[in-house]
Simulated assay, not measured.
Amino acid sequence: MENSPMDLLPGVGPVLEKFSNVKRIAVLRGGGLGDLIYTYPALHALKRAYPEATITLLGTPVHRAVVATTEGPVDLVELLPVARGVHDGPRNGERFDDDAEDVAAQEAFFEAMQAREFDLGVQMHGGGRFSNPFLLRLGAKHTVGTCTKDAEPLERTLDYVYYQNEPDRWMEVAGLAGAPAIIPPPLRPGPDHQQNIAGLRDRRRTSLVVVHPGATDPRRRWPASYFAEAAAGVAREGAQVLVVGDRAEKALAQEVTELAVRLLPEAHREAVRSVAGELDIGDLAALLDEASVMLASDSGPRHLAQALGTPTVGIFWVGNVLNAGPRGRSLHRIHMSWVTSCPRCGADVTQVGWTAPHCGHDDTLIEGIAVADVVQDVLDLTATSLLLRGR
């Protein structure tokens, strides 16, 4: 498959010589929805560089659901066994529960994967302390990935420094495998899911704004009352607002919805409703594809909206902007909190990951972001979105 000049991007790192005779590629990526979306530009680059190869993602149930319900570069998904630093099992507070590891399940997994005889193993999961030994047990002919100073090296490695844009990081890893950076196509939801969400759209409203108030880390969550005020603000301007979330976020979504409705005059109260817990991942993708704008904290659904090409307004802590913030501002706006210490105990929150333990407090770090500024960006991007879609 030939690369056209419009498809290629200047690399964020060197593009090394391709490996020869690559027919089977395994990519290791645990974590949640956003963790998978980070890797999609790199996965597309690998698919372009090795068009005859099958890409098998070693991932999690949500990854399998995304691959099954959207069009993308992954051919197969194999679910990871519970393994320290790769795929967490049940938690005991912030500590990994050693009893969660199933050694027999791990051995069965490695035996099955070794039988695949992968030509290339790609590590796209953290700094490699746990993920590199895991990848090496696949027995792939060639390996590439990231590596901290205390991690077992692979055949070709990229130094892992925490504060780096995540899609760029994994694109740089793809370059180690000989895959030039490309402009990836947007994700596309399946037609069945588009039909599933058709009844949710209120065509009497001028636009659709999808709101996701959740985030895995509570410190990344904008207060529910702020989301409610923003939802009410855009509803007053004619937007339909649907609040989304998984089953664990139903109470939060309902709180946002009820607070927003109280702020609205009767004529606009039906414009805001929660559909949290009602959508599978394919339906969520279809809804976000239909949306004029998405408003969210730094979360997997916001990353999914961006991958679909939907404009987003994101509420970020400054450190997360470095890793996960969108790079352009035409379709994506960010509001950033510059807080660098825990509001309760003063601990430095910029030292993350393995470099410093969590202080134990989950107070939000982004409370200081003004609602009025966020609402204005949602309205501005709504106008842009409607213009682009010819509505």
Results as ranks from 00 to 15, higher is better:
residue 5 P to F: 08
residue 7 D to S: 14
residue 10 P to G: 08
residue 11 G to D: 14
residue 14 P to R: 10
residue 18 K to F: 01
residue 24 R to D: 13
residue 26 A to Y: 04
residue 28 L to Q: 11
residue 30 G to S: 03
residue 38 Y to R: 11
residue 45 A to V: 05
residue 55 I to G: 05
residue 60 T to W: 00
residue 70 T to S: 12
residue 72 G to L: 05
residue 76 L to G: 01
residue 78 E to G: 04
residue 80 L to W: 07
residue 82 V to E: 10
residue 83 A to S: 15
residue 84 R to T: 07
residue 90 P to L: 00
residue 96 F to A: 06
residue 97 D to A: 09
residue 98 D to G: 00
residue 101 E to Y: 03
residue 107 E to K: 10
residue 110 F to W: 11
residue 110 F to M: 07
residue 112 A to T: 15
residue 113 M to L: 15
residue 115 A to S: 14
residue 119 D to A: 15
residue 125 H to W: 02
residue 130 F to I: 00
residue 132 N to A: 07
residue 133 P to C: 09
residue 134 F to G: 02
residue 135 L to D: 13
residue 140 A to L: 05
residue 143 T to P: 04
residue 144 V to T: 09
residue 147 C to E: 11
residue 148 T to N: 08
residue 151 A to L: 11
residue 152 E to S: 12
residue 152 E to G: 02
residue 153 P to I: 08
residue 157 T to L: 00
residue 157 T to K: 06
residue 157 T to Q: 11
residue 159 D to Y: 11
residue 162 Y to C: 08
residue 163 Y to V: 06
residue 164 Q to D: 10
residue 172 E to Q: 15
residue 177 A to P: 01
residue 178 G to I: 02
residue 185 P to L: 14
residue 191 P to E: 07
residue 196 N to I: 03
residue 201 R to L: 15
residue 201 R to Y: 14
residue 208 L to G: 07
residue 209 V to H: 03
residue 210 V to N: 05
residue 211 V to K: 01
residue 212 H to N: 15
residue 213 P to W: 03
residue 219 R to N: 04
residue 229 E to S: 15
residue 234 V to F: 10
residue 235 A to H: 00
residue 237 E to M: 13
residue 237 E to S: 14
residue 244 V to D: 00
residue 244 V to P: 00
residue 251 A to T: 11
residue 252 L to H: 04
residue 253 A to D: 06
residue 256 V to A: 05
residue 259 L to V: 01
residue 264 L to K: 05
residue 266 E to H: 13
residue 273 R to G: 13
residue 282 G to L: 02
residue 282 G to Y: 05
residue 282 G to A: 08
residue 292 S to K: 01
residue 296 A to P: 01
residue 297 S to A: 14
residue 299 S to H: 09
residue 300 G to A: 09
residue 301 P to K: 05
residue 301 P to S: 00
residue 306 Q to N: 06
residue 314 G to W: 00
residue 316 F to D: 04
residue 317 W to Q: 09
residue 325 G to V: 07
residue 326 P to Q: 06
residue 330 S to V: 04
residue 332 H to K: 09
residue 336 M to R: 08
residue 336 M to F: 00
residue 337 S to P: 03
residue 337 S to V: 07
residue 339 V to Y: 08
residue 341 S to P: 02
residue 345 C to Q: 06
residue 355 T to K: 14
residue 362 D to W: 15
residue 365 L to R: 14
residue 370 A to K: 13
residue 374 V to Q: 05
residue 380 D to P: 02
residue 390 G to D: 14
